[in-house]
């Protein structure tokens, strides 16, 4: 196993912290930090989409072995 995998195996002995649930207030704060000015209605529309994205990202994290590198410049040949 690569060093990468060994490090991740060591880290996995500790349970991952629970991600806090996303609320409109949290989303508003995140949006403000990003420079986005959104109304409450817009935030309410975005909330389920951002939640869905976070769920998919969490599933992906769980499915990736530790030693896979990203395609940093994605080219085949």
């Amino acid at each position: 196993m690569s060093a990468h995998g060994l490090v991740n195996e060591a880290a996995s002995r500790y349970p991952a912290p629970m991600e806090p649930p996303l609320t409109i207030d949290t989303l508003r704060t995140l949006a403000t930090l990003q420079g986005l000015e959104l109304t409450d209605e817009e935030l309410a529309g975005l909330l389920p989409l951002v939640q869905a994205g976070r769920s998919m990202a969490e599933s992906l994290r769980g499915a990736l072995p530790g030693d896979v590198e990203p395609a940093s410049q994605y080219r085949i040949m």
Partner: peptide, 22 residues
């Protein structure tokens, strides 16, 4: 709306997406 969702994708989530592609 779809574009705005992109503002909330973390750097790590993006990189994991590129890892999954491999």
């Amino acid at each position: 709306e779809r574009l705005r969702v992109g503002a909330f994708v973390s750097g790590a989530d993006y990189v994991n997406g590129q890892r999954a592609r491999v």
